[in-house]
Amino acid sequence: MGTTWDGILEAGLIINNLGINLTDSFARTVNNGTHTRLWDDIWISNVRLADRFPRLYRLECNPRCLISDQRNISANNDLNGSFRWCWTRTPTGRTATELSELDNPLRTVTFRDDIDDGWKWKLNTNDQFRSSILTELINIKILSNDINSGTTLLNRLVPKKIEIFVWRARQSRLPTLCELNRRGIDLDSLLCLVCGNVIESVEHALFKCELSVKIWRCIFQWCIEPIPRDLNFQSMLQGKRIGLNPNDTSNTWQAIEWTTAHAIWSNRNQVVFKKKKMLCYIDLKRNSS
């Protein structure tokens, strides 16, 4: 059980580091007070009452008490007499001042004795936790914040799987032979499994391999676009056209480049894992029509 919760906490910290405040996104909703600790849980004013009123907390006979333990149900939610306090001694001086100050936050709470306490998730408008919404938030953060290049990795013209593919390639997380070797996996050879001439890196697999180069040339000719001298991953990320306006960053052109790179990688996997022949541009065009 400890390992499970350690994994959950670690995942929460990773999500927090992405800029999604997951830790503080959950908040208690207090109704009848039967599942919420009065002093130790955060249920009012975004801070524990034990921290806000430390002197009173030290006088409490039952510091671990639930809200329902201290409420007077017959008081009908009227603060006067609605809480029955149990102190080790009568509050005086600054402690009495804290007791007076405690009056204000308690007056803001409306209790409902027919409903149990629960939780709400602040990152959803209806307060309910949805893993699909959290996944979308994570994807947006990951794909829109490439710290090293400052390049936005979002393009609404392509499926999410292609955006994730581009992000993985940018982070050197595609399982090329070079990356597998760097992670300590014992391989017979690091030479590209398609052409067999050069060590297979991300740049080689997507842009430098002989068959990849042929496909890129056909794509550029099809789009009536000048063929760049050195097509590489950085230029594909930016999606800049070389033709009429080099400063134009067209989402359409970027989508074509990303989709082509993804198709090359997918067909590379067909060669490696299913021993199929690498598709040429004509095959790709026929399969997409």
Rank of each mutant, 00 (worst) to 15 (best):
T4E: 08
D6F: 08
G7Y: 09
L9S: 08
L13N: 12
G19H: 01
L22Y: 14
L22P: 01
T23I: 08
A27V: 15
V30H: 02
N32H: 07
H35M: 11
W39K: 03
W39D: 02
W43E: 00
I44N: 01
E60P: 00
E60L: 06
E60C: 14
C65V: 06
I67G: 01
N72P: 02
I73N: 07
I73S: 06
S74D: 11
D78N: 13
L79P: 02
N80P: 00
S82F: 13
T88S: 13
R89N: 07
T92A: 02
R94I: 06
A96P: 08
T97A: 06
E101M: 09
D103M: 02
L106T: 07
T110I: 10
F111T: 01
I115K: 06
D117L: 09
G118N: 12
T125L: 05
N126A: 04
Q128H: 08
R130Y: 14
I133Q: 11
I133C: 05
L134Q: 07
N139G: 12
I140A: 05
I147Q: 13
I147V: 14
S149E: 12
G150D: 05
V158W: 01
K160M: 12
I162P: 02
F165M: 02
F165P: 15
W167N: 15
S172G: 10
R173P: 01
P175M: 11
L177G: 00
R182V: 00
G184M: 07
I185R: 12
D186W: 07
D186P: 00
D188R: 06
S189V: 07
L190M: 03
N197G: 03
E200D: 05
E200F: 00
S201C: 09
F220R: 08
Q221L: 09
W222H: 10
P226T: 10
Q238A: 07
G243I: 04
S250Q: 08
S250A: 09
T252E: 12
I256F: 04
W258D: 01
A261H: 00
H262V: 04
I264H: 02
I264W: 08
W265Y: 14
R268H: 05
Q270E: 13
K276E: 12
Y281F: 15
Y281E: 00
D283I: 03
N287E: 11
S288N: 10
